[in-house]
Amino acid sequence: MTANDDPRQPLRLVVNDDEVEVRPRGHHTLLDVLRRELDLFGARPGCTAGACGSCTVLVDGAPASSCLLPAQVVGARPVRTVEGLARPGELHPVQQAFIDHTAFQCSYCTPGFILTAVSLLEREPDASRDRIRAELSGNLCRCGSYVKIMDAVLDARDRMRGHHDDGTPYTGPTAGYARPSAAAGAGAAQVAHP
């Protein structure tokens, strides 16, 4: 087959603030494109049915199961993977909190949990423990690190908003982290993620 006979059509995506051109096959999912064409391995194959959260990415700021999302339908909507969270020399507060609380064992599920938490905390900076638990319920950890994951997300929430539930200032690492503009995640609907 020559290049002229290739049935794949070019597709422009915005991934981690970079515009990229890929040539997926018609059946390729966003997960396929991220891993096979862009070498972004943070989104991981798990159940391939949208039930485990291992493949979670953010599309328009909302968690999405990239194993279910055909690459062709993403279009110009911005995609963020775990690789796109950190700033030069500084981890995102949720990433740092996961490290500080050792909120993982094998870490296979960690990127999905982190992205789901980032999306929630950008939309709802004062999310309660129950709200966080409900939002993370679409992510599964086979190692059972749920207690530490919850501790990490609660700590990240306090880091990002700059205070604890009782109103005392948060003075630990990454205190005062500036959230993206409210418009970035405002009103974003959840996309193909339980």
Rank of each mutant, 00 (worst) to 15 (best):
C106V: 14
Q72G: 08
L121H: 12
Q72A: 11
V118K: 14
D126S: 03
C109Q: 11
H101N: 11
P78T: 13
F104R: 07
C106E: 09
E135P: 01
R123K: 10
R87I: 02
D130W: 03
A86M: 08
P125N: 04
A127N: 01
S137K: 05
G112E: 11
Q72N: 02
C106H: 08
E135N: 04
A103K: 09
P111F: 15
I99M: 13
S107W: 06
L136I: 04
A103Q: 03
Q95R: 05
S107C: 10
G112R: 08
P93K: 06
Q96S: 07
C106M: 12
I99E: 06
P93C: 02
E122G: 02
S107A: 15
R87F: 04
F104D: 00
R131T: 14
G89C: 03
H92V: 00
V94A: 04
A134E: 09
G84M: 13
P78K: 10
G112N: 12
Q95D: 00
E124I: 05
F104P: 02
E90C: 01
A134T: 03
A97W: 05
L120K: 12
I132K: 00
D130T: 13
V74Y: 12
E90N: 05
F104V: 02
S128H: 01
G75L: 10
R123H: 11
Q96H: 07
Q105P: 02
L136K: 09
C109R: 11
T110S: 15
S119G: 08
C109W: 02
R131S: 04
S128E: 01
P111K: 15
R77P: 06
A97K: 03
D130R: 12
L91D: 00
P125E: 02
P78D: 11
S137M: 04
G138Q: 07
P88H: 05
C109L: 15
H92I: 00
R87P: 03
T81R: 06
L120N: 10
A76E: 15
R123W: 03
V74E: 07
F98N: 11
D126Q: 07
C109A: 15
V118F: 13
G138H: 08
T102K: 10
S128R: 04
A127F: 04
V73H: 06
F104Q: 05
G75C: 05
E135I: 02
R87G: 09
G89Q: 03
S119L: 10
H92S: 00
Q96T: 04
H92P: 00
E90K: 07
P111H: 11
P93F: 06
S137G: 14
D100I: 04
V74L: 14
T116R: 11
E83F: 09
F104K: 06
G84L: 14
T110C: 13
G84K: 14
